[in-house]
């Protein structure tokens, strides 16, 4: 296993507010990592910094040995880190097919190629197979704004995965999804990403999801990583239990005790 992402001493302050502090994380190839923490703990800020949306106040971010600090999101995307969003960022008034067609076209064309037709049959074929992989083929011609929440999230993630990124960061893939649908949704996502051996970091509030799909946990609290450990270990970490999970968790955990590894 080789290191793909290395984050050292990352800091981010907004005026007097410290949004990220002393973050040190090393991510290996093919890992599936869960990022947990209460609202405002700095999870999304972390993702925003790694993907270039926010510039860190100080610190290092290296992706396969390359410094990412100062690069805009598009450059980082081209290098191989993609992301999805808590609120799906799709082309709302377009069909699912056209959303992905555009995603493929941007991924595949550069320079003068941008002036070749957007649509061609081979690209359409790739889009359709991608739709099947994410099990949204039945919505192919539906307008994105009319999609059910879960489907729109799948579309958002499918668009992020078009480039076959080395690392995919998912910002709360199951937020806004009913409890019954969550596992089905995560199964689709994880199965699809496994085909490309994608390294996944995802932000999640539901500890059952974390326990089922994740091998390692990063727990955030007030901008700091208070725990970085294999899932089973993290779940019993006193800091995590106090600041992230809270007492109510104990009950649900014992009910689903058998589903701990991903």
């Amino acid at each position: 296993m080789s290191v793909v992402l290395e984050v050292r001493d990352l800091q981010k302050t907004f005026g007097a507010v410290v949004a990220a502090k002393d973050i040190n994380v090393t991510v290996n190839e093919h890992e599936i990592i869960g990022i947990i923490g209460a609202n405002g703990a700095g999870k999304t800020t972390f993702v925003n910094m790694v993907t270039g949306y926010l510039k860190p106040t100080s610190g290092q971010i290296e992706f396969t040995g390359r410094n990412l600090i100062g690069l805009p999101p598009r450059e980082i995307t081209k290098l191989g880190i993609s992301r999805s969003f808590q609120v799906p960022q799709v082309f709302m008034s377009e069909s699912v097919f056209d959303n992905l067609l555009m995603a493929y076209a941007i991924a595949e064309e550069t320079g003068m190629g941008l002036l070749s037709p957007l649509y061609n049959d081979e690209r359409a074929e790739r889009v359709d197979s991608h739709l099947r992989r994410y099990q949204i083929a039945e919505y192919r011609n539906a307008t994105a704004s009319t999609l059910p929440q879960g489907t729109r999230k799948l579309l958002d993630i499918a668009m992020a995965a078009v480039r076959k990124p080395t690392i995919l960061m998912l910002d709360e893939p199951t937020s806004g999804i009913s409890a019954e649908e969550k596992f089905g949704l995560m199964d689709i996502i994880m199965d699809a990403l496994r085909l490309d051996d994608t390294t996944v970091l995802f932000i999640e509030h539901d500890m059952e999801i974390v326990e089922r799909y994740v091998s390692r946990v990063l727990a955030f609290y007030q901008g700091e990583v208070i725990c970085d450990a294999p899932t089973a270990e993290a779940m019993v970490d006193p800091g995590v239990r106090e600041f992230v999970i809270g007492e109510e968790y104990h009950r649900t955990r014992t009910e689903n005790g058998g589903s701990e590894h991903a």
Binding site: T77, Q89, V90, F91, E94, L115, Y119
Partner: peptide, 25 residues
């Protein structure tokens, strides 16, 4: 308007953030 760059009119109008995260300015 039927090329990738032409079609990107729609993409930029609808969601610039997504365009950036798909890898284009």
């Amino acid at each position: 308007l039927k090329t990738t760059l032409g079609g990107m009119s729609m993409a930029v109008r609808e969601n610039e953030i997504r365009v950036e995260y798909l890898g284009y300015s």
